[in-house]
Nucleic acid binder design. Structure first.
Lengths: 195, 195
DNA sequence: GTCTATAACCCGATAGAC
DNA sequence: GTCTATCGGGTTATAGAC
């Protein structure tokens, strides 16, 4: 089946890129994990980079169903949703003994001069994440001071997460991640206290 | 000259790893930039990874003379020193049109399963950075609330910087970096206001 | 310590039968 | 659409003369 084969390739590549990175994943690795032969992959994709594009596209369209929905299950308070999402990343971090973090962030720093379409999809993924969190802060309404820009605050939450993941992956403990998120929580608590 | 050759190799590799990353830099690249032949490199280093170790070691010992000293030139206030260091990274970012960020952070995310000595040196570099900033916050004394942990705050400053660099490199503009640092500044201003 | 040549290997991508 | 075999090129590292 054609659709199935293509899907298997993308899913296999998604896992491999997250675990080993883009450059360190060979086409042979993808073929092996997908249980597919070279001819099939090159029938659906012009080359390896196009597989990456498909993976980034899947992440982009998966933000709601694959990331936000599970992270926000049962959480309705908009500000708690921000921290529920951060907690979601922490779970992923600890479940993998702090070896895997955010796959988008890893690829973004691994590729030093990505081709324009790759860079555009990386930026779109970050933008989607930020916009989702921005919406939470907007929904928080007057619980936050009116002079605090909601998008700036959402960007800050993402940099806290990405930076925390970076340090925690490096020393294989969630300590730095926890410290950063605790500080972000402290900041947002204070914003709510004296709005 | 032996010492000179070894040094040229390390400096060439330092530049290349920062610009292209570790995996994408070939030994041939290093040889070319250093103006050295393969025999010389393999005379001084068992392999490519050992060149990386030497580079990370140089970064580690260069934190004060190569990073803090120039960033803090003329800045004495401990809290302003924190933001002067962040400004230093912003300068590097904008001077390179947002293509290069923190070389340690890039390598840390690029290598998914680094050998223990590499990981140890990456962690030591982050630790040295955090400790320097922690000292600033300690020197700030009672300008900051006593119940705010100085090391947590220093870790937060590093994650803000690394996350900001990641996003800014991805969309090739310092906007995200500036937003994150502005939020950190806002937080620390508030800590000082109602200590 | 420095040089050149090259070994041994892995990579992405392709050709062409089925 | 799927398979196998393989091409051409780049990789790290080594051998051995000087």
């Amino acid at each position: 089946m054609s659709a199935d084969t293509k899907e298997r390739i993308v899913f296999a590549a998604m896992g491999l890129f997250a675990r080993k990175g883009y450059a360190s994943t060979s086409v042979a690795d993808i073929l092996h994990d997908a249980g597919v032969n070279a001819g099939s992959l090159y029938h659906f994709f012009p080359g390896k980079q196009d597989v990456l594009l498909a993976v980034l596209d899947m992440y982009l369209h998966g933000i709601r169903p694959m990331l936000l929905q599970p992270a926000w299950n049962g959480v309705t308070d908009p500000i708690e949703r921000v921290f529920a999402l951060l907690e979601h990343y922490r779970d992923y971090l600890t479940r993998t003994e702090c070896t895997y973090g955010c796959p988008i962030g890893s690829i973004a720093l691994e590729l030093h001069e990505p081709d324009p379409p790759v860079r555009a999809l990386l930026a779109a993924n970050f933008d989607g994440w930020i916009s989702a969190i921005e919406t939470c802060f907007i929904e928080a309404g007057d619980r936050l001071p009116s002079d605090v820009d909601r998008r700036d605050l959402a960007t800050f939450a993402l940099t806290t997460m990405e930076g925390g993941v970076m340090l925690s992956r490096t020393d294989r403990t969630p300590v730095a991640f926890d410290r950063s998120v605790r500080m972000l929580r402290h900041y947002i608590d204070r914003l709510q206290a004296d709005r």
